[in-house]
């Protein structure tokens, strides 16, 4: 008997700005790109802490967390985010978007960040990056 209520799994992504940096043009564009790719985006907005992101990711059962950084704080903030997720025993992939120099991209990936998207990344790359980290 066919089931009336089954819907295909939706990818749920928590998007947030971690720290004081208020540049939100990029993250708002990314939110729309992911929505238009059929995903559910839980947008936390500005000035989030690692604790507030962990709490939201847990309650929302996020498949991925996307953080946007434009203030050169990525080498401090990204590891702090990963540590907070570890502490909460949440195995949710983290994607960083924003201004990250090539050398730092390597550092972030080694640290455990799942993907890094630079400024001006095409919509298709953004969507593919999220799908890839969620599947793997």
């Amino acid at each position: 008997m066919p089931d009336p209520s089954t819907s295909s799994p939706k990818i749920r992504v928590v998007l947030a700005k971690l720290g004081l940096d208020g540049h939100d043009r990029g993250i708002k564009v990314v939110a729309r790109i992911l929505r238009d790719a059929g995903m559910e985006v839980i947008y936390l907005g500005l000035r989030q802490t690692t604790a507030s992101i962990v709490a939201a990711a847990e309650q929302e059962d996020a498949d991925a967390i996307g953080l946007s950084m434009h203030n050169a704080g990525h080498l401090t903030l990204a590891p702090a985010m990963l540590a907070a997720l570890d502490e909460a025993e949440l195995d949710i992939p983290v994607i960083i978007g924003g201004i990250v120099p090539d050398d730092d991209v390597e550092v972030l990936l080694v640290t455990g960040v799942a993907a890094v998207l630079g400024p001006g990344a095409p919509a298709a790359d953004v969507v593919a990056a999220v799908r890839d980290v969620v599947v793997s």
Partner: peptide
């Protein structure tokens, strides 16, 4: 149109 959503009520 796309089945996606932006959920912002938590803010």
């Amino acid at each position: 149109l796309t089945g996606g959503a932006i959920l912002g009520d938590r803010i």
